[in-house]
Design a protein around this nucleic acid. Structure first.
Lengths: 221, 221
DNA sequence: TAAGTATTCAATAGATTACTTGAATATGTG
DNA sequence: CACATATTCAAGTAATCTATTGAATACTTA
C-alpha cells in the first residue's frame, strides 16, 4: 500500500460515511431514532416518506453502521448503533445551527412565529430544576417518553395538549421540550400555551442532547 | 412556514453542508488547508488533482462557507473559514478512525508497514515535552511549519530528512509529526529513521489537532 | 502592449443518487 | 391453508455529482 492508496482509502471511507449522512430524509430519520427505537412503520408515520423509500434510506444508514436493526414478529425495529454516533451528530447539528447562516435564519423565523424565541438552554435548565415553580413538560409521543426522558419531566404529548389545558398550573413556569432543535413539537406547544396565557418557554435542545450531557458528566465523575 | 417546510429547510441545509464534505478529494483539500493557507497551485501540488478540478472543489467548499479565499497578485489563496469548522472536522475524522472498522483496519495496516504503530498521543506528548531527551520533529514542508507548529518542535521536512540524518541525535527519542492522522509523512519519516537505528515514534495526530487543543485549554483558563 | 502564468468557467460524458412503482418475501392470524 | 400486514427487493427514470477538456478571464512582467 503506497502513500496514495492509503490516503485514498482513508478519505474515501470517511466520505462514504458522510455521504450516508448528507441527505435530508436520512437526517430526519436519525433525529427520530435518537429518541429510541422505532419500526419502519413508526418512522414512516413520523416522517413524510413512503414505506419503500424509508426502508431504502435505512439500509444506507445500516450499511454505514449508523443504525442497527432487530426483528420482532413481523416488525423490524431500528435504532442508532451507539452513542458515539449520537455525539457526532450532535456536533454536526450544533455546527449547522451556529455556522450556517441560512439555518440560523430559518430557526429564528420559526421561533419568532411560535413565540418561542426565549428558549432555555440545557445549562439554564439545570439551574431551574430544583425550583418548584418550574414544570418540565415532554411533548413528544408517549412511546418516546417511555424510552427515556429528562429527569423530572412529565409526559404530555403535543396532540393531547389541547384537551389537558385545564390540568396545567397557571402559576408555574412551563418548559416544553421535544426531539431537539429541528423538532417543532415544542414550538407548537409554546404557541398554544402562551396564547392561552400560560407562562411557557421552550428548551433549546431536546432529549437526546440532554442524554449526551448526562453521559459526559457521569463519565468524568 | 408550516412544520414540514421548517423541517425540510433545516434538514436540507444541513445535508447541503454535509454533501460538501462527503467527497474524498475535498476532504484531502481540507486536511491541507488545515495546515495554513495555500494557493490553488499549492493544493494541486500536494494533492493528486488537476488544476480545474481543484478549483471546482474549492468553489464547493467556498459556497458552503468552509473555506475562504483572498487574492494576491495572480494567486488566489484559500484557507479554512474558521476554527469552528476545524473543530467539526476533527470530530468527524475522530469518529471515522474509531468507529468505521474499515478505516481502523487501513490505519493499522499503514502503521504496521511503517513501524509506526507505537504512536504517541497528544496527551502523552504533553508529559514528554519537558524531557530534554525528547526531540519533537515537524516533517511537513517548511511553509506549513512557518504558518504554525507545535511549540518546541524543529522543522525537518520529510524530503530533506535523508540528507540531514547525520545531524540528528542518536541518544534522544525522536517524535515525528505531520498534518494529521491521514497524513503519511511522519510514517515515512519513522520508517526511514528506525531503519537507521534511531529511536523514533510518530505522533498520532498532527499540528491542527494540537492547535485545537491549545484553543480549548486557553479558552477554559 | 504582448506574452506568460494562475485561476475560473462552460460543456460534456459517465457514474451515482433519489424516489416511485409493483412485485417478492416473511411473519402472523383466522 | 388462505389472507393480511410489514418489510424488502428490483427496475426504471429523473436529477445530481465528478472529472475531463478546452476556452476565457485576470493579473504580472518584460
Amino acid at each position: 500500500m503506497d502513500k496514495r492508496e492509503f490516503k485514498d482509502a482513508m478519505y474515501s471511507g470517511l466520505a462514504k460515511m458522510l455521504k450516508a449522512l448528507a441527505n435530508p430524509a436520512r437526517l430526519e430519520l436519525i433525529d427520530l431514532l435518537a429518541q429510541g427505537e422505532k419500526s419502519v412503520e413508526g418512522l414512516v408515520e413520523a416522517s413524510k416518506l413512503t414505506v419503500a423509500n424509508t426502508s431504502q434510506h435505512l439500509q444506507v444508514l445500516k450499511n454505514n453502521n449508523i443504525v442497527k436493526s432487530r426483528k420482532e414478529k413481523q416488525y423490524v425495529f431500528y435504532s442508532l448503533s451507539n452513542n458515539e454516533f449520537l455525539d457526532l451528530y450532535h456536533h454536526i447539528s450544533r455546527y449547522g445551527l451556529s455556522e450556517i447562516a441560512e439555518l440560523e435564519r430559518t430557526l429564528v423565523q420559526q421561533r419568532t412565529q411560535h413565540h418561542s424565541c426565549n428558549a432555555v438552554s440545557l445549562d439554564e435548565l439545570e439551574l431551574m430544576m430544583d425550583d418548584d415553580n418550574v414544570l418540565l413538560m415532554d411533548v413528544r409521543p408517549a412511546v418516546e417518553f417511555g424510552f427515556g426522558h429528562i429527569t423530572g419531566a412529565i409526559s404530555l404529548p403535543a396532540d393531547e395538549l389541547k384537551s389537558q389545558l385545564c390540568k396545567l398550573p397557571r402559576d408555574k413556569e412551563i418548559i416544553a421540550y421535544c426531539r431537539g432543535p429541528f423538532c417543532a413539537l415544542s414550538d407548537d406547544a409554546v404557541e398554544l400555551l402562551s396564547s392561552k396565557g400560560f407562562k411557557v418557554r421552550r428548551l433549546d435542545e431536546g432529549y437526546p442532547e440532554w442524554k449526551l450531557k448526562q453521559l459526559e458528566t457521569t463519565k468524568t465523575e
